[in-house]
Amino acid sequence: MTFLNVSAILNAKLALHLSYLEVFDIKTRIRELRKERKLSQEQLAYAVGTTRQTITSIEVGKYTASLALAYKIAHYFGLAIEDVFDFSDIDDEGTDQ
């Protein structure tokens, strides 16, 4: 398999992953938690290994964090993921249990 084919497959997989993420509009409490702890977006981004722009996008709801980043943010605040991210929109859609 050529390098170009591998790159194309990886891009397609990432695009699929992104299209899945865009289905949900997840609200967060990050801004509120930051204000409580007097943290800047830059400081939080540095601590969780991302950029200030990403934190801004997550806060305003333009971008949905990956599970790994959501875990890091929640862990940083000492809370569970569902205490930082609001999954009520997903819950409303119903899941087979």
């Binding site: 790159s7 990432l14 290994g49 990956s66």
Partner: peptide
């Protein structure tokens, strides 16, 4: 900071959507 910038998931997502690295290659 540079490590965070290079490995930022949003940046990677934006690049993938814009066609990197295939377009550059």
């Amino acid at each position: 900071k540079n490590y965070n910038q290079e490995n930022d998931e949003r940046t990677k997502a934006i690049r993938a959507k814009a066609g990197y690295p295939m377009v550059v290659i």
